[in-house]
Write a protein that binds this DNA or RNA. Structure first.
Length: 262
DNA sequence: CTAGATGTTAAGGT
DNA sequence: CACCTTAACATCTA
């Protein structure tokens, strides 16, 4: 479930752990995981490169090197990073293993095969080619309204649309709707200027707070919906029962009392 | 054993 | 054409 806040956590982890390490070699254990370039060319082009830092864009992580290809990572639904001593077997479901010249290694792990690694010389162009909208934590109020208004679909599906805004998935779209007190299935058309302003403010706050915690749901404030999705839980605001609805093919959790449809 | 979960994308629909 | 929705993908858990 890595969404923007989780990937922010991966960035922090990677920058703290592996910055300025030089790549001795890399191994790809599953050819399906590397996209757009061959495994061999990925390995060849990473060899000898030094990690110069990383940039997050939506749910994507761009790992810059000095040589200069940038490693592009997506964590799908089950991806994570593990940096550690390079002895013994890598963690289970490691798809890409990067060996550094200091005796440590970075494992890019993904249980299910949704997620990928790629290479680019131009991250900005890469994002453009892949139709990525502006990062949801970066986007200003005016651009936010500009990109959302006129859409025909539901609020939740617009928030999750990566070409409108990059970074929001199922869980955080529910959280943003909950805290903005908007029903996830209302049409974007129904929102007026005030509703957009409130929504933008709420989105920035939710993602900002969550990103600071690196997406750790166990550390989310108790007033949040996060982690309460499911049968047993009640609304943290009014105590009423939560409801689930299918909105554009995903399960939305919400409080029918706090998030009226009209 | 089957259903459901997650994010992206291709395919189908308006 | 622009936009929206659905189904498929892989694989593990309930």
């Amino acid at each position: 479930m890595p969404e923007l806040p989780d990937v922010a956590g991966f960035k922090k982890y990677l920058d703290a752990a592996a910055l300025h390490q030089r790549i001795e070699s890399s191994q790809c254990f599953d050819e399906r995981f590397v996209k757009e370039v061959s495994r061999r060319s990925l390995q060849r082009r990473l060899k000898g490169a030094e990690l110069m830092g990383s940039d997050r864009w939506g749910k994507w992580l761009f790992v810059r090197t000095d040589t200069p290809p940038t490693l592009v990572l997506h964590f799908g639904m089950t991806g994570l990073l593990d940096y550690g001593s390079d002895d013994g077997d890598p963690p289970e479901h490691t798809r890409l293993l990067v060996h550094f010249d200091n005796g440590r290694r970075l494992a890019i792990i993904s249980r299910r095969m949704i997620g990928m690694a790629s290479l680019t010389d131009d991250p900005r162009r890469w994002a453009d080619d892949h139709d990525l909208g502006p990062d949801a934590l970066d986007v200003g109020a005016d651009e936010f309204v500009e990109r959302l208004s006129g859409r025909r679909g539901s609020l939740k599906s617009a928030l999750m649309n990566q070409s409108i805004l990059a970074g929001i998935g199922n869980v955080y779209s529910d959280e943003i709707c909950f805290q903005a007190r908007l029903h996830p299935a209302i049409g974007v058309k129904a929102l007026d200027e005030r509703a957009f302003a409130n929504l933008h403010r709420t989105m920035r706050r939710v993602l900002g707070v969550a990103a600071k915690r690196g997406g750790d749901a166990t550390k989310a404030p108790r007033s949040w919906l996060l982690g309460k999705r499911g049968r047993e839980a009640n609304c943290p605001r009014c105590g009423g029962s939560l409801e689930a609805a299918t909105v554009s093919g995903r399960t939305a959790w919400f409080c029918p009392a706090c998030q009226p449809k009209a």
